[in-house]
Amino acid sequence: MNSFSFHTTPSIRFGAGTITELGRIVTDRGWHRITLVTDKGIVQAGLIEQPLALLHQAGVEVTLFDEVTADPPEPVVYRAATLAAEAQAQAVVGLGGGSSLDVAKLVALLLGTSQDLRSAYGVGNAKGPRLPLLLIPTTAGTGAEVTPIAIITTGLHEKMGVVSPVILPDIALLDPELTLGLPAPVTAATGIDAMVHAIEAYTSVSANNNPISRGLARQALQLLGSNIHRAVHEGRDLEARSAMLLGSMLAGQAFTNSPVAAVHALAYPLGGHYGVPHGLSNALVLPHVLRFNMEACADSYAELAPLVFPDIGPGEGREGAVRFIEALATLSHSVGLVQRLRDVGIEQDAIPMLAAEALKQQRLLVNNPVPVELADAAAIYRAAW
């Protein structure tokens, strides 16, 4: 057995109504001035009201930053960090989807160290220390509450990542009640995103692919596959929402330690250049990347198939893998997601540019079971178009 390391958030609180513990959790840690990082959608949905009330009741001074956007650009991170510094924040709380949680991680990093954000990009370059950090997800997709990764947009379109155990939060607070109002399209896209995390973690060729990650990926896929339809079509079903949130977290723990690969690498340019939401970007390229990986991953895909789709019948090797890939494509359609790049306004003549951009994501592509060259990336995009 190869040696490996495994990192995750040290304290995880999960359960319906867990948000009511927020004030006590914060004050027990001695945090009396915090910056709360979120987005205007969370504010408009009313999801910010209870956390703010709980913190105020506990005597915590809160500075609210609600300017996070999807695929957050660098200036958003710097504005949030400046606000937190001016408020002399002792800790950072992130509330929302993956973008808000990622910004919260970087704000905590910037306020705890003299290191510049630019020097922190890449794997293992963020040295810390950071401010204390608590993350509260309101979507079941990114697993960001248990990952040491923050992705932001630099320049006009390029995505860069800070990847370091330093930005793993101190506490993840997961309350499925916060996801009950999530719209069906967002539920579907984020759910597929979580499934991609588990699939890619399971088949990653990273030297750190390990039995803990593979076990978590299998459990995540079982939870996600059996509950995504109910969560999308019966959005107030707390049991389904709980399973999706737990599955997303488990997938996050898996890919934190056995990193994702070509699906994510090819998805990033779709978000960076066309504003396609991250989960939908993954869904659009997923079956095409899996077909590209087929020869190297047939047995693994066949192993995962009955966990997600117990009704598709037995199949080993290539036969089982084909059933798995086709069932995933059908699932994406059945939860209401568009299926083609053209459906999100991407022109066919953009494919060479997208392929060149995807090849910049070498930190991800090195984990893919089959090497991806420029012509391969272009062929996958053409298949998805």
Rank of each mutant, 00 (worst) to 15 (best):
V162F: 01
A188C: 05
P73K: 12
E303R: 12
G279A: 07
G320T: 03
A84N: 10
T69Y: 01
A220V: 05
L135R: 05
S204E: 04
H32S: 15
E67T: 07
L95A: 09
P306H: 06
A379V: 05
I325F: 08
L374I: 13
A254C: 06
R340L: 06
R340Q: 14
L22D: 11
E357Q: 14
L374C: 04
G46H: 07
G252Q: 03
M294Y: 07
Q361M: 14
S258V: 13
I19L: 15
T8G: 08
A305E: 08
F6Q: 07
L328D: 02
S334M: 10
V372T: 05
A383K: 11
E74C: 07
Q57E: 15
Q362E: 14
T203R: 02
V93M: 08
V77K: 02
P176Q: 10
G46Q: 07
G141L: 02
V260S: 03
P314L: 10
C297Q: 04
S334V: 02
L365S: 01
F324H: 15
N282R: 06
A120E: 07
G17R: 11
A188N: 00
T147P: 07
L223Q: 01
T330C: 07
M353K: 13
D349L: 11
K105R: 11
T9R: 03
L180Q: 08
T18Y: 07
T69F: 01
E303C: 06
L156D: 13
L280R: 01
G124A: 12
R214T: 14
A70D: 12
A150N: 05
N125C: 11
P169M: 10
S300A: 15
A240K: 00
V335F: 04
A81M: 10
A329D: 15
E158R: 14
M195F: 00
P259S: 11
A70P: 14
P129F: 12
R130F: 05
A91E: 01
P185F: 11
V166Y: 00
N227M: 01
T142Y: 01
R241N: 04
